[in-house]
């Protein structure tokens, strides 16, 4: 029973990204800033840090594929980017001792890696043509703050869940 906890939390985050976060998106109130929730990715990086990297990569492929099918036109972009982000950041963070502050930094790096991969891949296939300065200021920076906040919110509860799953 406990083994469904993590996929269930992941799916919940995935759904919240597209529904509740869109209801309270700042554009609805006339703001230029774009908050891109990457909640599923934050949960994935916690899995990579505390459970195992291969498991995180497998979940990342599944979550990314679902994201591609439901929210985009192109299959493969999120699947690849999320798996790579989970793997690379997971490997790089292996050497560090994780506490809340380090975890927050790791989650920042994850979101930056993921967003740059997506921006790069979409630009590469010619789907978007977007100035990088605008991308950094209006999208990446606010998104980092949002996702950092989400990380702080779920860090302690997720640690408990993962501990109970690991037992």
């Amino acid at each position: 029973m406990k083994r469904v906890y993590l996929p269930a939390i992941l799916f919940l985050c995935f759904i919240i990204e597209g529904t509740i976060m869109q209801v309270i998106a700042p554009e609805n109130f006339g703001s230029q800033l774009v908050l891109v929730p990457r909640f599923a990715m934050i949960v994935l990086i916690l899995i990579a840090l505390y459970v195992s990297i291969p498991l995180a990569v497998i979940y990342a492929i599944a979550a990314g594929l679902l994201h591609d099918i439901i929210y985009t036109d192109f299959i493969g972009i999120y699947m690849f980017s999320m798996a790579v982000a989970a793997y690379v950041v997971g490997q790089a963070a292996k050497v560090m001792h994780i506490n809340a502050i380090v975890g927050l930094l790791v989650s920042f790096v994850t979101v930056i890696v993921l967003d740059f991969l997506i921006y790069g891949l979409y630009s590469l296939i010619g789907f978007i043509d977007f100035p990088i300065k605008l991308f950094l200021l209006e999208r990446l920076l606010p998104s980092l703050i949002l996702n950092g906040g989400f990380f702080i919110l779920i860090f302690a509860p997720m640690k408990k869940v993962i501990k109970s799953v690991n037992e």
Binding site: G18, T19, Q22, Y71, T72, Y122
Partner: peptide, 14 residues
């Protein structure tokens, strides 16, 4: 409307 793409690269509604 029941959902929207969270990244603003895709402007798709469900």
């Amino acid at each position: 409307v029941i959902a929207r793409s969270p990244d603003r690269w895709n402007n798709l509604l469900t």
